[in-house]
Amino acid sequence: MKVVPSRSSEWVKPVASQKPASAIIEIDRVSQVFQTSARKDHLALSDISLTIEEGAFVSILGPSGCGKSTLLYIVGGFVSPTSGAARIKGQAITGPGPDRGPVFQEFALFPWKTVLGNVMYGPRQQGVRASEADALSRSLIEMVGLKGYENFYPKELSGGMKQRVALARTLAYHPEVLLMDEPFGALDAHTRTRLQNDLLNIWERDRKTVLFVTHSVDEAVFLSDKVVMMSKSPGRIRQVIDIDLPRPRRRSELLLDPRYQKYVVDIERMFDESDEAGSAT
């Protein structure tokens, strides 16, 4: 899937030329209108088309208010688009399902359940036997680095730990696609960096498809195979950029890599340009 950088416009490719090998998610001319008041409509998403290949780590990057989370909720089936359609493996998305596992910025853990109870919830709902679900959940809790915290309640955990539990809880029911909605947005810089590294380590094991919403350029470049840049009012796709950096990635190494730096700087420049263009009109 990696696109070889061309000479002039480097790795920047327009949306139309993306020819996916094995698409898992297709977003087809999706628009979303929100009624903000009785007479005023707000066009949150305008005519979005996007294809996500199986096993890809794709970030949706944009300023707040560009509709990037809404797009993720449409794929999740939590919000139905005003027009257009989203599909998973060719099937129209009509509602939430265990094939798409969300991880939210707000963690959204069940506070009345322990860490173990939270992680076991999905498998139990899916009909997995208690003993099996228990063993699976314990191994996932260990994988996200929370061994020993099985019987803690969410209120006893820090933000970073809560998000680790949320990730384990979602992985526990084996979704085919992870939908991550600014998952590290509420965390301090140090915790965020650690979770980014850990997320990539976990992702390397089975390379599930990930759709990752963020407003941090450097987070998007560090994690992704592909960055979808969005602009706001109305929310549109500006550009889709393939990130051609070797994996596995370590943050400490990558920060020194000129290729990484170039991606970050170029994307930031593009956002700056659009801001200027936006304020000029």
């Binding site: 939430p96 069940f110 709902q125 899916q126």
Partner: peptide, 8 residues
């Protein structure tokens, strides 16, 4: 939503 995704 988390519950809905789990199939509740």
């Amino acid at each position: 939503w988390s519950g809905a995704a789990m199939g509740l």
